[in-house]
Computed example of a mutant assay.
Amino acid sequence: MTTRLEPGDTAPDFDLPTADGGNLGLASLKGRKVILYAYPSAMTPGCTTQACDFRDSLASLKSEGYEVVGISPDKPEKLAKFAERDALTFPLVSDTDKSVLTAYGAFGEKKNYGRIVQGVIRSTFVIDEAGKITLAQYNVRAKGHVAKLRRDLKLAD
């Protein structure tokens, strides 16, 4: 059984390669509120819907003090194509060995078309300025997720 994070837990640290050829670590975001969302695969319909939803909401999320970071097991090269194709202007990090996804409880058993499979569990984590989890959502829907997240965080529309 995959361990799931709860509010109050310390967010697992990471330092991962990004779509733009750099690296991004959680430590470098300390002092800022972070929305880390885990998605199964770049350039698939659901993941594109979700990424574009975050892209379209980025200015309002940033105005509320949130940084957005997407994480998937895709290689940086695929993430770069995804970011370019869909004009994604927030960092996408690559977790090819799935160790960070596993630490967040976002990789493990899930149902896919009625079958139990191992894979990325579409999840969103809100991390406060001190690196603590304030919200952990698992099995989120790709469509409409950002609007629901805004409601859950009590942010203005």
Rank of each mutant, 00 (worst) to 15 (best):
K132D: 05
R85A: 09
R122P: 03
V117M: 11
T48E: 06
A147M: 14
A51I: 00
R151G: 14
E64Q: 15
A38Q: 06
S99W: 02
G22M: 04
K81I: 13
P40W: 10
T18F: 00
T18A: 03
P73K: 02
K154M: 13
Q50G: 04
T134Y: 14
F82W: 06
P76W: 04
F54I: 00
L26P: 00
L88T: 03
G22V: 01
L79A: 04
S72Q: 00
S57P: 09
A87M: 05
T3F: 12
G131T: 03
P76M: 01
K111L: 13
S123V: 05
L61Q: 12
G8D: 06
A156N: 13
A11P: 00
N23K: 05
L153D: 12
R32P: 07
K110T: 05
S57I: 07
G8C: 11
P73H: 11
D157S: 13
A156W: 09
G114S: 04
M1Q: 11
P45K: 12
P73Q: 04
V140Q: 09
M43P: 04
D157A: 07
Y37K: 01
G31M: 09
A142R: 06
S63N: 14
L149A: 14
T134A: 11
A103Q: 11
A147F: 15
A27D: 09
D53R: 02
Y113G: 04
E84W: 00
D20Y: 02
S123G: 07
P7R: 14
H145P: 13
Q118K: 15
I127T: 04
D13C: 01
Y37C: 02
A142S: 07
K98W: 09
A27L: 03
K154V: 15
K30I: 07
